[in-house]
Design a protein around this nucleic acid. Sequence first.
DNA 1: CTTAGTGCAAAACCTTTGCAGGTTG
DNA 2: CAACCTGCAAAGGTTTTGCACTAAG
Lengths: 162, 162
Amino acid sequence: MSIMCAAKTSLTARERFDLYLRSNHKRRTVERFAIMDRVLRAPGHVSAEELCKLMKDDGYPVSAATVYSTLELLVDCGLLVRQRFNDKASLYEKASSGTTSAHHHLICTCCGKIKEVRDPALTDLIASRHFAGFTQSYYSLNIYGICGSCSRRRRKKGKDKE
Amino acid sequence: MSIMCAAKTSLTARERFDLYLRSNHKRRTVERFAIMDRVLRAPGHVSAEELCKLMKDDGYPVSAATVYSTLELLVDCGLLVRQRFNDKASLYEKASSGTTSAHHHLICTCCGKIKEVRDPALTDLIASRHFAGFTQSYYSLNIYGICGSCSRRRRKKGKDKE
DNA sequence: CTTAGTGCAAAACCTTTGCAGGTTG
DNA sequence: CAACCTGCAAAGGTTTTGCACTAAG
């Protein structure tokens, strides 16, 4: 969406967000940095609504509108990735970088559970790919199927009747 | 969601859907087959709403509820894949098979355009991966970034003022 | 001091659901 | 002929938007 040419290296998240906001002539408000802090501190992936709740629990309530708009900025500046795994709300997770390693997702189409898996060979191959005229910023590999507990449950049911 | 153990080989789409409906004790209605026909005939990916319109244009109007429920069946039986690329409506596309080859998606975060690309090496590697206790049914690899026209437009703007 | 950002609530949007009537098995 | 499916409209849940107020530059 906007300008973000800063080297990805050796900048703290805060510095990066700060630079991004300056470069794009957007205001550096208390709310934006508070939301950035909180979402980067959360493990795994968080929905906008959960993040609202987390902020309120911390005694720092912010409106949904602000959370959504800030999440968009964080995605745009490359600190977060927005994932839409299923019908439910979007989930936001830290973008992979030096400190947070790339991973893929196994999504159970039966119970909706999402598991992160790492596979360096796959990660490397995807990263090495370049497509003509397209400037890649991030990717997501989502593998859908049936998780262990669901397939056990299904097998059991199958014995009863089928 | 349901039982679909039929060999993926040498069955027409219609046969496969028919078998799926029978096996799962679901009714084989005219609407369901008409929707199946239409969506498989559409190139690329279609949204539920577009599909409704296509059906109406064909002189075969069906309600949104029926379209959504049939699309779900078609996904469940493996003929379609549901993709959620961005904020907008879900898109449905033919699942890869002998006749329709696997592909990945380049998604422009600026204009939203979606391009299909093929990369056999990548496809093979992903297909060869197995994760413990997880029965893979399909996957989607989405690569986000800036497409050619958007980066040209952006460069141009940058020259004017920046 | 100008203008973007915030909070609130309402709107917009996609998708699901409840109900009455029609069709399938 | 019982149960399921369809169509319609209304409800549901997520995200965006309009407006008055506040705060950043």
